[in-house]
Write a protein that binds this DNA or RNA. Structure first.
Lengths: 224, 224
DNA sequence: ATAAAAAATTCTGTATACAATATTTCGTAT
DNA sequence: ATACGAAATATTGTATACAGAATTTTTTAT
């Protein structure tokens, strides 16, 4: 997103290296559920499917392990990291605090244009909600939250927030199944848009944080 | 130690895999300044020095890159990540927020014994301060902050806090050179100990956060 | 038939080999 | 002498090969 690039600085053009491609590919397989949490990662099967050798594949596993998506057990193979309910709660607890910070910084540092662009995104989300189109809404929702964090102007915050989001993405996705919950989430977003328009950082932070904690009740049943 | 093993269940002694050893080794070289920020990492020289082959070495670089200590530029070699002042400030901004959360959770969740143990650590630090023994003080200081975060009972918070700390460790170390600053830091720690004893989470969070922001003024000149 | 032991197989960790890309060195032309 | 270009060199990215550990299968003894 352009919004992000603005704050993140130089967008790198360099051709995606094989390593990055494999990382992205496996990450997708995990997020989309092709590789299920707790299941063993069959190296030989995957390298064949991906058409790469073990070297870039294993390096990819190392970075995914560092990202927390994969667990490498010495001499015993790798598994898709399985999140316990406690861990999910812990992540949301941290995310809530990070979004609170992001909200305050964004209200302090963002330009009017940037805020307007975020509000436009919010309006667009509402349209999808009216039409009950879950998938586009879901994607825009991710973008919206990423957008606020991006406007904080804090690259470290962006990075960490992005990582936690990636780890939770799958769970969030499956937890997005109740219409009742959906309405609640939309209402919270409405509040956030109001606070954002008013540049009320404390208020926005409060809502964003509450929004995140509420996510817990929305996804808790989805956690194995 | 045994106590831990008992309560934690099957804690395996597993021989540190070569990968982990290399990661730890390079991390130390970076933190201790043998590998200076911005400098290129000479693969052939290092694998010879470490006595390992390229495979575990490169995998180690991948995890260090994911940790943010190393930057791998496709086909152009790896360098020790150099932090700009802005990045350091960003990290401290995030750390401040994380420590605030940790403080509140710790005051809510820690047992009396755990708090007592932290306060004992604080007292010990004071002794080292009186004797002006920087190194032991420095190490205990790290332990103290880690301790508070640990008492939050949030493993994700522990992990992220640990990572940011690792990235900043070197800078923190070199920034620890002014006696005036030292006195200030000790005074802040005194306040923190008081709030901790009173289990005043909001207050402790406030001080911890301020402490972290103040760190900026203490290390800003040390940042290249 | 079951359980233990041994053998075979599979899989992971590490080393090395090869290919592609970047960097340096050297020579040539202006 | 300097700038440009080509060859030589070094370095990175990827593939493969080999060794050792774990797992599975087979064999054997009760």
């Amino acid at each position: 997103m352009d919004l992000l690039n603005q704050t993140m600085g130089a967008l790198r053009v360099d051709k995606a290296t094989l390593h990055d491609q494999v990382v992205a590919r496996i990450r997708d397989l995990i997020v989309e559920g092709a590789l299920t949490p707790g299941s063993r990662i069959d190296e030989s099967a995957l390298i064949e499917q991906l058409g790469v050798s073990r070297t870039p594949f294993r390096e990819a596993l190392r970075t995914l392990a560092a990202e927390g998506l994969v667990e490498i057990r010495p001499t015993r193979g790798s598994v898709v990291r399985k999140l316990t309910p406690d861990e999910v709660f812990s992540m949301l607890e941290v995310l809530a605090q990070l979004e609170r910070l992001a909200a305050e910084l964004a209200c302090k540092r963002a330009t009017e244009d940037q805020i307007a662009s975020l509000l436009a995104m919010h309006d667009e989300m509402l349209v999808y909600y009216e039409k009950r189109e879950r998938m586009p809404y879901f994607k825009l929702n991710q973008e919206f939250h990423r957008g606020i964090v991006g406007l904080s102007g804090n690259p470290v915050l962006v990075e960490i927030h992005g990582n936690l989001h990636a780890r939770l993405k799958r769970i969030r996705f499956v937890g997005n199944r109740g219409p009742d919950f959906w309405a609640d989430a939309v209402a919270e977003h409405e509040e956030m848009a109001l606070a954002l328009r008013a540049r009320d950082g404390a208020q926005l932070g409060e809502i964003a944080s509450r929004h995140m904690v509420n996510t817990w009740t929305r996804v808790r049943d989805a956690v194995s």
